[in-house]
């Protein structure tokens, strides 16, 4: 039989597995498991991990902008609320926050769907961390930009909207991309509040076949691929921004 490319590749994989696991049947079994678990893992990623990341990030960024504006506002009470929020979120573990929302709130009669709980938890978290990035970006815009806006008659809000925020956005995109990539990985914590995202799928699969190393590694690999493409995208965006700014 003439070996096709595919059979050759499978042969190589088998040889490698055989060298680790001398029992040939076990190698076959592992390949089979790897193949069959890929689909539910990707399903978890597409149905939950990715939507959870995107929805939480969008809500989080809105929260972050509001929080950053509150931090730089002249109104004391806004400043205080924003500071307490950021400090509380940054000072407590994300997992504990998720547990409070999902397992804790029912004690107050508030029972939330796992996905909703996770969205709330991650949004609050992104809101706090990203607000610091956005605040720093706003502060980094030279004072002369505000003054140029004022000098042509703009109000605070007009200068903020038309002059400062567009420039601050450009400054914040690289660090916010990092926040986004971290969020992809952090969503694995949602498995502990019963969201059937990718890692929970992995746990479910592994608990039936006991191939923990294989299944968890496979999940890790999918996260890696996701983040790899996101960082390519990030590099691409940064290059475009550089071209525009310098």
């Amino acid at each position: 039989m003439v070996p096709t490319k595919k059979s050759l590749r499978n042969g190589l994989v088998k040889m490698y597995l055989n060298s680790i696991f001398p029992d040939p049947e076990r190698a076959d079994r592992l390949i089979e498991i790897a193949k069959t678990s890929l689909q539910p893992l990707l399903e978890g990623a597409v149905m939950n991990t990715i939507p959870l990341t995107i929805i939480s990030f969008i809500i989080g960024i809105i929260l972050a902008v509001l929080t950053a504006l509150a931090r730089i506002s002249q109104v004391k009470i806004f400043q205080v609320i924003a500071r307490v929020y950021v400090s509380a979120i940054r000072g407590t573990p994300l997992l504990v926050q998720l547990f409070i929302i999902f397992y804790g709130l029912p004690n107050l009669g508030v029972t939330l769907d796992p996905f909703i709980s996770a969205v709330i938890g991650f949004s609050l978290s992104v809101g706090a961390y990203a607000s610091e990035i956005i605040r720093a970006a706003i502060i980094s815009i030279p004072k002369g930009q505000w003054e140029a806006g004022y000098s042509i008659g703009m109000t605070y809000t007009q200068a903020l909207k038309r002059i400062i925020l567009p420039q601050a956005t450009r400054v914040s995109i690289p660090p916010l991309s990092n926040t986004f990539i971290s969020l992809v990985k952090d969503t694995s914590l949602a498995s502990l509040v019963l969201v059937t995202e990718m890692f929970r799928r992995a746990q479910e699969i592994a608990s039936t076949n006991y191939e923990f190393l294989l299944v968890y590694s496979e999940a890790a690999f999918v996260y890696w691929v996701l983040c790899f493409f996101l960082s390519l995208l990030q590099g691409f965006m940064e290059k475009r921004l550089d071209r525009y700014m310098s």
Binding site: G144, Q145, E147, A148, Y150
Partner: peptide
Amino acid sequence: KKQITSFRRLTGMVFQSYNLFPH
């Protein structure tokens, strides 16, 4: 503040460091 904003429109300012909007 309102009065300041409207008064400011009477004057045009040219800055030493230009302060153009870079975007």
